[in-house]
């Protein structure tokens, strides 16, 4: 296109201006799309959170910040908020750490790297619902594979006369202290492949020349990792951290399906903000209150993402 523009000197606007206009024109299409299906509903849901819910707009009562006040004093909301932050604190470092570790190891693998990558990526493309159901069975107290192994181990250590090595069968999803971590493990397992793939891509984008230069200067493997890999991988790290955090804050599918009888249970210990919002909106027909939850969730995600971008982008070195 730029070639054609150069050959048509009739126009009065400069080439760069014309290119800018075209760029904005093309950007306008997705912008209108996002404005109508993303931004407008977001503004609407803020409006909704100030009214009681009724299908007839004329019968919605303005109550101002009442739902926000209710939120702050509602123990279930507080529990869901705590859980959501805990999910984030657990799943983000774990899946980034494991993902980076596996990517580094895969990079050292010479044969069948594509196969390994495919294997690690498979959980990510498996539907969350199917994953949750299968893990629900694996965690099952009586028939799950984990307790099966624990019981076999128990029998084994008793036979060899070391009964103090035995472990009690666990209630992975029903123990209030353990349930959230059991769900978090599933989420980490599922996201791992995504992390591995983007870290692999990031690692392959680092020019060999830096490693060679550092090695000539006598750098050991740790120094290579710390002073070459990490700084040059920073953009990928920032992306991974932001995306994983947002995913963790919006956790829904896995929680809903792993304990279908008591979603978010036991005792609300696996309840996430997104699930809480859904239950209030469609289980209890309190859409105004649910909208208030959404607004709070939006603010939390916005603030956390901004802080992360501030903290992590400072260190980008080229």
């Amino acid at each position: 296109m730029s070639f054609e523009s150069q050959t048509t000197p009739r126009s009065r606007i400069s080439l760069s201006q014309r290119e800018a206009i075209w760029a904005y024109l093309f950007l306008l299409v997705p912008l209108i799309f996002f404005a109508t299906i993303r931004f407008w509903p977001a503004i609407q849901s803020f409006r909704l959170s100030l009214f009681t819910w009724h299908v007839d707009p004329a019968r919605r009562l303005f109550i101002g910040s009442q739902y926000y006040e209710e939120l702050l004093s509602n123990p279930v909301f507080i529990q869901a908020l705590k859980n959501t932050l805990l999910y984030t604190v657990v799943t983000v470092p774990a899946s980034i750490g494991l993902g980076l570790g596996i990517a580094l190891m895969l990079q050292a693998v010479r044969h069948a790297r594509g196969w390994y990558r495919a294997i690690y990526f498979a959980p990510f493309i498996t539907p969350a619902v199917a994953v949750a159901w299968v893990w629900g069975w694996m965690y099952n107290e009586n028939f799950g594979i984990f307790n099966r192994v624990i019981v076999e181990w128990w029998v084994f250590v008793e036979r060899i006369g070391l009964p103090w090595l035995a472990i009690e069968p666990q209630r992975f999803l029903r123990n209030p202290e353990m349930a959230l971590y059991s769900v978090a493990a599933v989420v980490i397992w599922q996201q791992l492949g995504f992390q591995v793939v983007i870290f692999l891509a990031g690692l392959q984008g680092i020019p060999r020349i830096y490693y060679e230069a550092a090695r000539i200067d006598g750098a050991n493997p740790w120094q290579l990792f710390r002073h070459v890999t990490i700084p040059l991988l920073n953009p990928v790290l920032v992306f991974a951290v932001v995306i994983t955090t947002i995913n963790a804050l919006q956790l829904f599918d896995q929680i809903v399906n792993i304990n279908f009888t008591n979603q978010g249970g036991p005792l609300n210990r696996t309840l996430s903000l997104a699930l809480y919002m859904y239950q209030e909106a469609f289980g209890r027909a309190r859409l105004g209150y649910a909208a208030a939850v959404t607004v709070v969730l939006f603010v939390i995600i916005l603030v956390i993402t901004l802080i992360q971008l501030r903290l992590t982008q400072r260190r980008v070195e080229y």
Partner: peptide, 8 residues
Amino acid sequence: VLEFIPGT
């Protein structure tokens, strides 16, 4: 026991 077989 509850959740002997998982699911509703």
